[in-house]
Amino acid sequence: MRRLGALIIAVLLVLGLAPAAGAGGDPRWVFYTKDKTRYTSPWFHGGHRIMIPFGCTSAPYYSPDPRCSDGRGFHHGLDIAMECGTPLYARFRARVVSNDSLGSAYGVNPVLLRNRKRHFDLVIGHTEKVYVREGQVVRAGTMFARANDSGAPDGCHLHFEQRAVGGGLSTAVWPRKLLDLTPRRR
């Protein structure tokens, strides 16, 4: 029976249907993109895949949106799959502002960073431990939180949502440039 199990795992690995040994993949991850690129960013270490891209998506958590065809919903950020506990670092100096306006979809303790000079608010959802508090200034390079699955039915990841300073959900824009996502070189 062990040999059969090992054979099945080997076949899945060869076909690319299971995470490679040591990849630490979360079995709950579901990817709503064909992009299999692993991206690096100054915001986190390692190379990670996008689970749900910004914009129209077939992910089932979003109500149909008139901007999207076929009854698809609109995702206002980028969800990036990463292991629980992955450290999160500030790319820029920013102030931690109140997360009271954010709903439960972002988890129990989302982080809202504001940088007036660069004209952004950054919502980071599904954090585990948060090492900063409201009013605190976070300097570039400072580790301020860790990834988790809080409020996320599809495993550990972080949700990054760029908004206008003081703006709501309707001001969300594509956050890829702010995150400085770069394809990981092998």
Rank of each mutant, 00 (worst) to 15 (best):
V132M: 06
A21T: 14
R163Q: 02
P175N: 06
H157T: 06
A152S: 07
I9Q: 08
E83N: 09
W29L: 04
A105M: 12
P27E: 13
A164C: 03
V123K: 05
L7D: 08
G166H: 09
E83W: 07
L13D: 03
F160E: 03
S101Q: 13
D35S: 03
V123A: 02
I8N: 11
G151S: 03
D149R: 04
N148S: 15
F44C: 02
R176P: 06
P87M: 12
P87W: 05
W29Q: 00
F74I: 07
E128G: 10
C84S: 07
R139F: 15
V11C: 14
E134Y: 15
G166F: 10
A81N: 08
A81W: 07
K177S: 15
R184L: 15
P110E: 04
Y62Q: 06
L4C: 11
T171V: 04
P42R: 04
G151R: 01
S104I: 09
F31H: 00
T33V: 01
V96T: 08
W174N: 12
C84K: 03
R114D: 09
L169P: 00
A164E: 10
R163E: 00
H76P: 06
A10R: 07
R67Q: 13
M143K: 05
L181W: 06
T37C: 13
I52M: 01
L179K: 00
T33S: 05
L181A: 09
Q162Y: 02
G141V: 07
T86F: 01
T37I: 14
L112W: 06
L12D: 09
R28G: 02
E134A: 14
F44E: 11
A6S: 15
W43E: 06
L12Q: 10
D121S: 04
Y89P: 13
I9C: 07
L88S: 02
D121V: 04
I8C: 12
G103P: 02
V123L: 03
P110V: 01
H45C: 12
Y62H: 09
A147F: 01
P183H: 07
A90N: 06
L102G: 03
V97N: 01
P42A: 10
V14R: 11
D180M: 10
R163I: 01
M143D: 12
T33A: 01
G55V: 02
L179C: 07
V138L: 12
R95A: 07
C56I: 13
T182E: 15
L13G: 01
V165G: 05
R3W: 01
S69W: 12
K177E: 15
G16T: 05
F74N: 05
P64I: 10
D100N: 13
V138S: 08
N99K: 05
